[in-house]
Amino acid sequence: MSDELQSALTALAPRLAEGGTTVSDLRRLSGGASQELWSFEVDGAAGQRRLILRRKPPGNPGSGNAIGLPNEAFLIQKADQQGAPVPPIVHVCQPEDGIGEAYVMGAVEGETLGRRIVRDEAFASVRPKLAGQCGRILAQIHAIPREGLPDLPVSDALTEIGKYEEVYRTVGARRPIFEAAFRWLKDRAPAPVEPVLLHGDFRNGNIMFQPEVGVAAVLDWELAHFGDPAADLAWLCVNAWRFGGAKPVGGFGDYADLLDGYHQGGGREVPLERLLYWQTLGSMKWGVMCMTMYASFASGADPSVERAMIGRRTSENEIDLVKLLEEANA
């Protein structure tokens, strides 16, 4: 498979770098769970250039929620035009390229591991700025005009709750904390606002950070959709993405810095209470997602111990829900 890809990319080399003729050091990167990620170098007039290929696994129908790679590449280019840090899109693969559904982007150096962002000394000086940066970047993404964008799903709080409650009922677990959370979330669903383009998975793991710069690139756009801006702001604050960090925003920052950055970046006023509502919805959602990952073990689709054990992370989200509901009801 790698040989075939090597020759397909070599044929494409002139399109990937000016004067490009050869492709070298092609290797598969781990990390992409639903999509393949390949790293390679192409030589060109300006020297070697490190590129990344993101491709749908051949023969894999893909995840039901994913928007498709051409749409991803399109949104990344739109975000780039708004000034948001994203990897530069170099080429969107066409059928005649023989690579399948894929695109090529420039490699961005940096760190995505939440644990390192939250703890490593290298990030100590930039860490206090990260929440504000994340707020400003989300404001840029949310400002992308809807006109001309692909026809992505639109989802408000009640749509999201309905979707994940249905998944929970299909799995068949009986967990009183989820019942309490569904009811609480439905009773307090905020009035819908004019939907904006959401990244849909803006959190540690999908954000590339550099020690001197802070946010270097926003990655993994496959869950983009239209919805409530508070949903993107809150997802970064869900405890699962804090990696043990003491601060609420990604383990590295404070709510006020995130919301101030968002407002300074041109985003509309988002009350903390609305963010906390969506954070609660986010803990429910990640808890249900852990259950569905376990379900793929139970059905035999993925018999790995990792899929089995992730089912035991559902309780982490339940304990977060209990804390959030306790604070909201106090």
């Binding site: 009183p176 904390i177 035991r312 992370r313 309780s315 982490e316 339940e318 304990i319 209990v322």
Partner: peptide, 13 residues
């Protein structure tokens, strides 16, 4: 709910 989930997370994580 609180007591139950504390016991459960002490087992799980």
């Amino acid at each position: 709910l609180k007591a139950s989930i504390i016991d459960q997370v002490r087992i799980d994580q």
